[in-house]
Write a protein that binds this DNA or RNA. Sequence first.
DNA 1: CGAATTCTTGACCGGATTCAATTCTCGTGG
DNA 2: CCACGAGAATTGAATCCGGTCAAGAATTCG
Lengths: 238, 238
Amino acid sequence: MSASPLVRKLGALCLLSEEEIEFLEGLQNNTLNADRGRDFIVEGKDLRTTFIVIEGWAIRYSVLSNGRRQILSYALPGDILGLHVNFRATATYSASALTPLKLSVVDPRRVIEISQKFPIIAAGLSWCTAREFAILGDQAVRLGRLSARQRLAHLFLELWHRFALIGDNNGDWLEIPMTQQDLADTLGMSLVHTNRSLKSLRDIDLISVEKDHVRLNNVKALIEMSEFNPEHLSEFEI
Amino acid sequence: MSASPLVRKLGALCLLSEEEIEFLEGLQNNTLNADRGRDFIVEGKDLRTTFIVIEGWAIRYSVLSNGRRQILSYALPGDILGLHVNFRATATYSASALTPLKLSVVDPRRVIEISQKFPIIAAGLSWCTAREFAILGDQAVRLGRLSARQRLAHLFLELWHRFALIGDNNGDWLEIPMTQQDLADTLGMSLVHTNRSLKSLRDIDLISVEKDHVRLNNVKALIEMSEFNPEHLSEFEI
DNA sequence: CGAATTCTTGACCGGATTCAATTCTCGTGG
DNA sequence: CCACGAGAATTGAATCCGGTCAAGAATTCG
């Protein structure tokens, strides 16, 4: 049996001992499957659980009273949701399965245990937190200061680089399980304009699209035109 | 001498022991003053320091190659910058003093020390982290799904509620040390449109503006019209 | 008092939204 | 195997919110 995505992710950061790996794997043995569309965290409801994504995609989002939705971030295998729930009891966002999802359900008290017993893992989780902040910061830049086409390219590049870290990259092809409505709700645009902007990226041959997949035809040019900064996601280097 | 803002903030969450208070105050005795406009964190540069804001306002921001700037968040007294720097060595954002600023400079190794020796404080910092995430998530909602007037109202409400926690609220009046250009860069809008939107909020009497201050004339109506959710910032309740 | 920054207002333009209709895709059941 | 229907993608047309350019008024501060 191969290592869990979280172990692979942290293992790419620093050398984990047998004991640490065992602990991390043991953390994830209480699993839960969620169908596409199923909410497993609901804004305003009690949240006293930490989730680790094992397989599939999840979204974090918030819905306004007029029905408009803003997707805040995507959670991929190895990502953790609700890492800091000890005090705050009510969720400030919702989370749902974008694809069939396999989660592990973790008692947050075990997270506290980590900082006392496994300093290396604790440092790794701290790194994950910093990374989440960087990703969310990039999302704010996208929403605030980029044009429609730039937003799309920027988001694709983020996801592509994130997959690179968990070693799930498929060449230039990127899995895109979300609908155009999901994309629109991520990038703060309308469905129609999302469609048109995608088309215009295709027209200038920067991307190719096939069922549920996008091909980044010219990563360098995409980085250039979208002001994407790969450093924000690069893994730790000595 | 009165307690530091950080102690007041965490003290509002949970009862701190003498020892814990002493430790937190001791953490902040290495101070640094920065003039308005002075960058103390620079994107792309090495960052191995944790800062705690003692007095004044700071901004976290990112600048694109075309010169456009996106302000990500405001740091107020008691807020911590660079809490999770142990691994990631390069800053993914810049930070600068919006007003004359008094910071304390903390060795991040002392932050690690906390999780081992002061579990209550560690829990408090974890709560701070969750709160920062909620604030940044709200920023994404503002940028992605709110109209210009809504964004302004939403931001004012955020700041007003944040001041409430550190006990620095001045009735309905809110200190606004930033220029309209700063506001524009926060809310992803142009300077001109920021000015016009402010005027339209004044015209319908939701706010009043005076030098460096805004008065929220009708908090309830502002919350209503801007879709602001105070729960995201409310402190921990039993 | 004078220079520089900040704020305000006008005019015009364009990117993005909205409404609406059509086409495409794909899972399901006859 | 194909017809059907629901969701998803695409395209057109009209509109509008917000951006850009430009100029002037008001503050602030040395």
